[in-house]
Nucleic acid binder design. Structure first.
Length: 276
DNA sequence: TACATATGATCAT
DNA sequence: TGATCCTATGTAA
């Protein structure tokens, strides 16, 4: 589930349900017990998405358990950082919440909602310097208004890897995952095996616009729908007929994951498919 | 019960 | 490139 659209959608929902409210924070599984104790009972100020990362910001510095000794966690600087990785999932319950599953790392409860987080790659408190380092390593996020596509273009021109690999590199742009890289390259008629730096300016512009449109649609719909009412062009369709030309969809390992593409429709600078 | 699988990322070699 | 970490779900046995 988690590419950038999922993260931005979660941020919206959590901002709506949790921000401005006092939150009971716990870690049923126990692996985030210390962090949860730091946050428990505080008011969530805001939730910010960036690429596949979520940042939860809290009011106040909390009452230090050790009686007020200044630590790096105090002073209002701590932020909850969540990255879902491949397996992470959030679940929200507005009615009665079920018992958390065995792997529930984090529980956030307000008077209106209970949120469970299981399986994240990252669930940790970070200080501002750590957050800076992290964000400086991320390329522009097509879903953010402040995204600067020039930075992504410049990064692509420097890469000596295939464009299909470069799109998964979060330093190039943040938020694109295995499904969107395949779908966007298909729509733009770009062969994923081409060198990243070989993209023309026009090709890059079209690719960026396509990703912005696709990701936004994903946020609206809560799932990745790129072809027609409920389908996808190539992602996960190995061997099935291409929706444009009928040739079997190809699969190839690229950057450790399978890239799906059409050898006919994406032969270099092929004719672009219709943008959804 | 066991296993395969999944839209991610890091670290070691 | 391969090993590793994280969890839930669906299918096979």
């Amino acid at each position: 589930m988690p590419e950038g659209h999922t993260i931005h959608r979660l941020a919206r929902g959590h901002r709506r349900d949790l921000a401005g409210r006092r939150v009971a924070v716990s870690s049923p599984q126990g692996r985030f017990a210390a962090g949860a104790a730091r946050l428990d009972g505080r008011i969530l100020r805001d939730v910010e998405p960036y690429g596949k990362h979520l940042f939860y910001r809290w009011e106040g510095g909390g009452e230090a358990a050790d009686g007020g000794r200044v630590s790096k966690w105090e002073g209002g600087g701590e932020t909850l950082h969540v990255h879902l990785g491949l397996f992470g999932t959030f679940r929200s319950y507005t009615d009665e919440a079920p018992e958390p599953t065995k792997g529930t790392r984090l529980a956030l409860c307000t008077d209106v909602v209970t949120v469970y987080l299981a399986g994240p790659t990252i669930c940790a408190l970070i200080d501002p310097l750590t957050e800076d380092d992290l964000r400086n390593r991320l390329g522009p996020d097509p879903l953010r208004r402040d995204a600067d596509p020039e930075a992504a273009y410049a990064a692509l021109r420097r890469r000596r890897v295939p464009i299909g690999a470069a799109l998964l590199d979060q330093r190039v742009m943040a938020g694109v995952g295995n499904a969107y890289r395949a779908e966007a390259l298909f729509v733009c008629g770009i062969d994923p095996r081409r060198a990243a730096h070989s993209l023309t300016r026009d090709e890059f512009d079209q690719l960026w616009e396509t990703l912005v449109a696709m990701l936004r649609k994903g946020v609206r719909q809560g799932r990745i729908v790129t072809a027609g009412r409920s389908g996808r062009f190539v992602y996960g369709r190995l061997g099935e007929p291409c929706r444009r030309c009928g040739a079997p969809v190809a699969g190839k390992d690229m950057a450790g994951r399978t890239i799906f593409f059409c050898r006919i429709c994406q032969c270099g600078g092929g004719v672009p498919a219709a943008v959804p």
